[in-house]
Amino acid sequence: MGLNVGCAARPGRARDNKTGSWRVFRPTVDSETCKKCGLCVLICPEGCIREDDDGMPVVDFEYCKGCGLCAEECPAEAIAMEQEEK
């Protein structure tokens, strides 16, 4: 494996770094209370929340650092932060 000239790289490799291992608290979405507004998807600093076909947020735990911003900002208070069991 050689080096790229000039320390340049194509996109894609950031995902090699699974930041989910940093997590202490885990966001859990309550599907009953979630209004599917999409705010959590927009504001996640990792960009690791997506919407499924029904508009429900799905967290990618390979990358979620557990910062809790989604839970703090959720207008419906549908996201709870729960301690990870190690």
């Binding site: 950031a14 995902r15 600093p45």
Partner: peptide
Amino acid sequence: ECGHRACG
């Protein structure tokens, strides 16, 4: 993309 090293 995901995987960046910013603080939570």
